[in-house]
Design a protein around this nucleic acid. Structure first.
Length: 115
DNA sequence: CGCCTGACCACGT
DNA sequence: CACGTGGCCAGGC
């Protein structure tokens, strides 16, 4: 149903990221069918208030946190990621580049599901 | 309608 | 890996 708004698809893509994995803004936008709208994803998250949304799993393409190291949000994101088993070092995620494998995340069938 | 800003990205050095 | 430059898009004024 192509009636869904861009913002809705973006949020869906973010929610599609499983616990313990991370994704990049650009990759999220791409999976949402909005190539080149990485900034829109960022703006959306900045406005978003949904606590059920795993915003902490969204990083920059470099695998780095999108917040300055001295920001409270930065600490929060790092803590949340570590709580999920993600290795964070100096504000950057180790063990998996942000979104380089988002396709795997959305297409991989590790969990039984209709598809 | 034009200008500035931003949880960005890719490329080259 | 760090820094600088240009590009792209959406919002607010």
């Amino acid at each position: 149903m192509p009636g869904k708004s861009a913002a809705d698809r973006i949020l869906a893509a973010i929610r599609a990221v499983p616990r313990g994995e991370v994704a990049g803004y650009g990759e999220i936008a791409r999976r949402a069918g909005l190539p080149g709208r990485a900034r829109m994803v960022a703006r959306l998250l900045s406005e978003n208030d949904d606590h059920s949304l795993p915003w902490h799993r969204v990083l920059r393409s470099d695998g780095r946190i999108a917040f300055p190291p001295d920001s409270p949000q930065f600490a929060e994101q790092v803590q949340r990621l570590r709580a999920e088993g993600v290795v964070v070092k100096d504000g950057r995620v180790r063990g998996q580049r942000a979104a380089a494998s988002i396709d795997e995340i959305l297409w991989a069938p590790p969990k039984r599901r209709g598809k």
